[in-house]
């Protein structure tokens, strides 16, 4: 069977198109590349959607944590503490079993116990908490001069926030937020190992990599393939966020711009 045929059969296997059965023996390199790459669709899906929704919620969380009003501040603080203080792995398990019991109460919640929605919700809440904390830190380190200058121009309220505070907050938070995005993509590999079932063997990249490692008893092929895909994905993320970072810093003289440094410090 040629490699092109394999790509046709298994290229979209992780979303349910193509061959129904996974290869059973005589695994070729092409099959491993194709299936693991097909699994990356899920990793990208979880990462991108959770990041987009998480970004909006994280802004709200950061502002809520920064206000004086305890009715807003306390819930935001607790939310961030709970999601940052406990392992994502346990959150996944807890979320899955919570959704299962919700499902038995009302059938409306049935989609939540499937990975595509349930795991997405957990990832969304988790990344919102982590990015919320990053944005909150940036909010607190906005230079006083910037705010005073805005006051001097007669800006106040929403206009001041939209024109001065929010752009500065983004600019300061962006390098740390880039790391958060990278590690969110890494965290998506946990989904199918934490309770959420891979329905009809439609799993993510790590799911297929460990499938091959289990079948061939040879970890030295599938995991490096997975690693290669993830390094590519990480480079894409760094490139995209670097472009946004340049855009955010475009008004600054060259030497004042904050460079993005990749730090392996946030796994959950």
């Amino acid at each position: 069977m040629s490699c092109l045929q394999t790509i046709q059969d298994y290229g979209l296997r992780s979303v349910g198109y193509g061959e129904r059965l996974l290869p059973k023996d005589d695994f070729t390199l092409c099959q491993q590349f194709t299936l693991i790459g097909s699994g990356m669709i899920w990793n990208i899906y979880f990462g991108v959607i959770a990041l987009i929704f998480g970004f909006v919620f994280a802004n709200a969380l950061a502002l809520a944590k920064g206000t004086q009003n305890p009715l807003l501040r306390k819930p935001a603080e607790w939310f961030i503490f709970i999601f940052r203080g406990s392992p994502l792995f346990v959150q996944f398990f807890f979320g899955y079993f919570l959704f299962l019991s919700l499902k038995s109460v009302a059938p409306v919640f049935a989609p939540l116990s499937a990975a595509w929605l349930g795991a997405l919700v957990v990832l969304f809440l988790n990344t919102a908490a982590y990015s919320g904390e990053i944005f909150y830190g940036a909010l607190r380190s906005i230079p006083r001069g910037d705010v005073e200058a805005a006051d001097a121009y007669g800006l106040s309220g929403w206009t001041r926030f939209r024109r001065v505070i929010w752009p500065t907050m983004m600019r300061l938070a962006w390098p740390a937020y880039t790391n958060e995005a990278i590690f969110l993509f890494h965290a998506t590999t946990l989904v199918f190992f934490s309770g959420f079932p891979a329905w009809q063997q439609r799993g993510d990249a790590l799911y297929y990599a460990s499938y091959f490692a289990d079948k061939t008893f040879n970890p030295f092929v599938p995991y490096p393939i997975l690693a290669g895909y993830f390094i590519l994905l990480t480079l894409v993320v760094i490139g995209t966020y670097g472009m946004i970072n340049r855009h955010l810093n475009r008004h600054l003289p060259q030497e004042h711009r904050r460079r993005i440094r990749v730090r392996p410090q946030i796994i959950r």
């Binding site: 890494h186 590999t189 946990l190 990599a209 970890p219 030295f220 690693a227 480079l235």
Partner: peptide
């Protein structure tokens, strides 16, 4: 540098067998 680009879970699963 390796741990920066690759999910740590992949390392865990890999090293145990390797």
């Amino acid at each position: 540098a390796l741990v920066r680009g690759i999910p740590d879970i992949a390392f865990f699963l890999f090293f145990v067998i390797a």
